[in-house]
Computed example of a mutant assay.
Amino acid sequence: MMRFDPFREIEELSQRVDRAFGQAAQAPARFAPPVDVHEDEQGLELSLDLPGIQPENISVDAENQTLSVQAERKYIRAEGRTAHRVERVYGTYSRTFSVPAKYDLSKVDANFDNGTLTIKVPRSEAAQKRSISVKSATTLNVEGKTDTENHNA
């Protein structure tokens, strides 16, 4: 038994009307791909789903603490071929992220594998965690000798 989904029925009706009046070839749609953002000591990692997109159709830009991703998946309509159902997403995928200054946008690394774009943004050198040695008056003296020992030597 199939459940009635009024939203699917409305969407299918809308697609039929669009096809009937040729509006499917309007300006391409814009979509925000889903993204996961994780942070660790090394920096940020963003993973975006871009199914069916070729790597050469992906653009990653970094400028003024803003990271932008754009990709395009074109619908190719062959002559003499009738589309009875077009449910996959076609058009422009676009996301923009504001990146805090503690990350270095000049060292962004992007990798595309199996429909997932992974972007790594490292922490800037100034924002890296580092251990600072604590000095005291006794550690400033040569080899742990006291001031009187240093003067007598």
Rank of each mutant, 00 (worst) to 15 (best):
1 M>K: 09
1 M>F: 10
2 M>K: 15
2 M>F: 14
4 F>S: 07
7 F>I: 07
10 I>M: 10
11 E>G: 05
12 E>I: 08
12 E>F: 05
13 L>A: 12
20 A>D: 11
22 G>Q: 04
23 Q>E: 13
24 A>T: 11
27 A>F: 11
29 A>G: 02
30 R>W: 05
34 P>G: 06
35 V>N: 09
36 D>I: 14
39 E>A: 10
42 Q>T: 14
42 Q>L: 07
47 S>W: 01
47 S>E: 13
49 D>G: 13
50 L>E: 05
52 G>T: 04
53 I>S: 04
53 I>N: 05
55 P>A: 08
58 I>T: 03
59 S>Q: 06
60 V>I: 02
61 D>N: 15
67 L>G: 05
67 L>M: 04
72 E>L: 10
73 R>F: 01
73 R>E: 03
74 K>W: 00
74 K>R: 10
79 E>F: 01
81 R>I: 06
82 T>E: 15
83 A>K: 03
83 A>E: 13
83 A>D: 10
87 E>Y: 10
88 R>K: 14
92 T>Y: 14
93 Y>C: 04
98 S>V: 14
106 S>H: 09
109 D>C: 00
111 N>Q: 15
113 D>A: 09
113 D>G: 01
114 N>Q: 15
115 G>F: 00
117 L>H: 11
118 T>I: 04
121 V>L: 01
124 S>T: 07
125 E>V: 11
127 A>H: 01
127 A>M: 06
128 Q>L: 12
130 R>Q: 10
133 S>I: 14
136 S>K: 06
136 S>H: 10
136 S>T: 15
137 A>L: 12
137 A>H: 15
139 T>H: 05
140 L>N: 10
140 L>P: 00
140 L>H: 07
142 V>E: 12
142 V>C: 08
143 E>L: 14
144 G>T: 02
147 D>N: 12
149 E>V: 03
153 A>G: 13
